[in-house]
Amino acid sequence: MAEARDTILEVDALDVRYGPVRAVRGISFEVAKGGITALLGANGAGKSSTLMAVAGVVPVTSGRISLFGQPTTKATPDAIVRSGVGICPEGRRIFASLSVEENLIVAGTAVATPQVAAKRRAEMMERFPILGERRRQLAGLLSGGEQQMLAVARALMGAPRLLLMDEPSLGLAPQMVDTIFSIVEELQCEGISILLVEQNAALALEVASHAVVLANGEIAAQGAPADLASDDLLKSAYLAA
């Protein structure tokens, strides 16, 4: 009982295949309530596949995923999101031909009433002032860091309990990487549980409360970030840090 209450996401013996490619091979881990769980690993390790399986976007070949204590085997991505999950996918995928504000309006349509959505939009523009300043600009014209902020703001429109973030720091200038990581920590302080996929292992291990290292679709190690960070062998083998 206690475990069910403290676990937001439970992944059990998850397998993801794309035809003959076994991207994820029987991995199990949990995301604790209120924590940041880092999912690390080299290119092609299966991090995004795991995240997209949790989101319901790629089908689970075998294994079990439970969100908020409910199995999600048959759930569609939109139903999973409406149940309280926010997604910042790999590559940000903001709607480039829509304005900043329109991106947020679209993000609010399914997860909030019009009044609540309007209130949250105002909150987002306050939290990320640059989005407020550029509200009428096409989102495609924003810089990479600004686009990432928009992607985060968009994922927050439904006031999620769990946030799935796929490499939010990728391709950003060092200063912007710091900004993004401080946002991640801020969100955690507000009580949002986070599953964070990162290639920047050093930074991810700094903010995480639990870390899972993937290699070739399997779990190479998992545990407290401090332990993983001090393991030189692990670092040199799997984490390009």
Binding site: F95, L98, V106, A110
Partner: peptide, 19 residues
């Protein structure tokens, strides 16, 4: 707006909870 977003990236729209 959702229709314009769908034309650009339908899967992303579903990841925002839109049916």
């Amino acid at each position: 707006m959702a229709m314009r977003a769908a034309a650009e990236d339908f899967d992303m729209l579903r990841m925002l909870g839109v049916r």
